[in-house]
Computed example of a mutant assay.
Amino acid sequence: MMTVLDRRLIPSIAAMAAIVVASNILVQYPFEPFGLAEVLTWGAFTYPFAFLVTDLTNRWFGPARTRLVVYVGFALAVLLSLALADPRIAVASGTAFLAAQLLDVTLFNRLRAGSWWRAPLVSSSVGSAVDTALFFSIAFAGTGLPWDTWALGDFAVKMAIAVLSLLPYAQLMNRVKPYGAARAT
């Protein structure tokens, strides 16, 4: 039986909260290089790594502990974001994060027995689509900002990072026996 908070989850929780808070701050700044201010924000480059954290945690500790990471990371990130980012962004982020990450956990767990790359790629892709749609429509709709093009640019970056994240996922997944394998807890 799992304790209330397994200390092995603390790095995942800390990484999750740091990624979300950084993304909530960075999403407020358009990505100006190469004339892409109408298409991207800086947050597009940080948030996709939350899916890598979720998928690795799910692989190593299983869905129940990963959901705990999502809930605790969500609470910390929303509290910190309320202090460090616009409140509308904090609410949008919390809503999108919770829906997308819990969906990611469920999809990853259902697909985990297949090819090593399928579970992280599919779960991150579907989770990213849900996250992008919810976040940008809640955070920026009605503001006059180019939120629809930011959402499309953000989603394109999330997909690129989902594919690139397969490299560290492949390297890290073999360092710890996966959930369900014979091991002492």
Results as ranks from 00 to 15, higher is better:
M1S: 13
M1R: 14
M2D: 13
V4E: 05
L5N: 05
P11K: 06
S12R: 00
I13R: 03
I13L: 02
A14I: 14
A18C: 13
S23D: 04
I25M: 11
Q28Y: 02
P30Y: 10
F31S: 03
E32W: 06
F34G: 04
G35K: 05
L36K: 02
A37P: 00
E38C: 00
V39R: 03
L40N: 01
A44M: 09
F45K: 09
F45D: 11
F49N: 04
A50M: 11
L52C: 12
D55K: 03
R59I: 00
F61S: 09
G62C: 11
L76H: 00
S81L: 09
I89Y: 00
I89L: 13
V91K: 08
V91A: 15
A92H: 05
S93E: 04
T95E: 02
F97V: 02
L98R: 02
L98C: 03
A99S: 10
L103P: 01
V105Q: 07
L107N: 02
L107I: 15
G114I: 10
G114Y: 08
S115V: 12
A119M: 08
P120L: 11
L121Y: 01
S124R: 00
S124T: 15
S125N: 07
G127C: 05
S128Q: 07
A129M: 12
V130T: 08
A133L: 15
L134C: 05
F136G: 04
I138R: 00
A139D: 08
G142N: 12
T143S: 15
D148K: 12
W150P: 10
W150R: 09
L152A: 15
G153R: 05
F155S: 07
A156S: 14
A160R: 04
A160Q: 00
I161Y: 05
I161F: 13
V163N: 01
L164P: 11
L164H: 01
L166K: 04
L167I: 15
Y169R: 05
A170L: 10
L172W: 13
M173D: 06
N174E: 13
N174R: 15
K177I: 08
G180E: 05
G180N: 08
A182Q: 13
